[in-house]
Design a protein around this nucleic acid. Sequence first.
DNA 1: CGCTCCTAACTAACTGGTTGGTTACAAAAC
DNA 2: GTTTTGTAACCAACCAGTTAGTTAGGAGCG
Lengths: 176, 176
Amino acid sequence: MVRDKEETKRKLLAAAVQEFAEHGIAGARVDRIAKNAGANKAMIYAYFCSKEGLFDEVLKQQVDAAIEAVPITADDLAGYAGRLFDRYVEHPEVLRLAAWHRLENGFDAIPEAEAKAYVHKVAAIAEAQEKGELPQHFDPEELLSLVVHLSILGFSSPVASRDLVVRSVDQLLRSR
Amino acid sequence: MVRDKEETKRKLLAAAVQEFAEHGIAGARVDRIAKNAGANKAMIYAYFCSKEGLFDEVLKQQVDAAIEAVPITADDLAGYAGRLFDRYVEHPEVLRLAAWHRLENGFDAIPEAEAKAYVHKVAAIAEAQEKGELPQHFDPEELLSLVVHLSILGFSSPVASRDLVVRSVDQLLRSR
DNA sequence: CGCTCCTAACTAACTGGTTGGTTACAAAAC
DNA sequence: GTTTTGTAACCAACCAGTTAGTTAGGAGCG
């Protein structure tokens, strides 16, 4: 038997991602996470304090990874929306985790990394507008909200495709 | 003491709407619903079979009410989006209930009333396109998805306003 | 290298409170 | 007096979290 704290934490986190994404916080079962990780339940409390502590860590890691994986391209918001769409298709867990989190904890309590990335993205859009790379008929915050929201269209409608997401962002950016 | 089956069912349903909207299916507590309804827990099982049965009835009623309250105006989709937005601000429960339901039951299992209303709305949009009241650069299904999705923008972004929803639908419909 | 000792990592079993659901009984309504 | 509506107490299963005890494996030492 190999004893490795970091490895055990990793396996617990990996199992927790699946469990929480599928069942949410209230629906997740601590015993199931431990079993699927091939670890002992007590380790969860040793390493993450509580079920909620484990969820917080899971969400943080997933949000960080998603933010890093899809950097904004302010001069090509349609492409950015498409890449977000792709990311969510490949890693639907992060969207589900965020949705559970918002439903269970209200609209406040946004992960810190998300808030920080938000500021940066708004600034990038504002700059692109000044350079004339983007139209001005939406504020930077508005544009970011619209693009991000449209990129998750596929999780609200079954008929939505990547192409539709890109085309609609494109249409939003057309000059008037 | 007054005994009235329908009245008791009504009070149970009203309490269940709040409980399920706030906590979801897994997080909702049957005892709390009964207590808040001023009724006995056993009545839930007499009238709705199970916790899930109660949830299904709650969701059905809320979806029916929302569909009836906001009829589509295919020749004015921006106005339609605005009215949907208003409805969700006034009755956020239905959106939360639907969100819990989708997370817990997957993307299938859409309430029947919703599927039926969907067909009707797509047809109305197609007709408006034929009449030239709507542009043709999106399919009817696509347009409906976009409008409905944009109307819930406020629940994905804190900076979204009614005005933003209306303006973005308007921009989507501009001729190219 | 072989041995002991120590500690961090791990485990199995348990606990106390909770939960969805049931049942035996009571009383209102007709 | 019979049927419908309601109640209180109950139950077995479940669940997050704890604890007392076990073991792997490295450090120190000869």
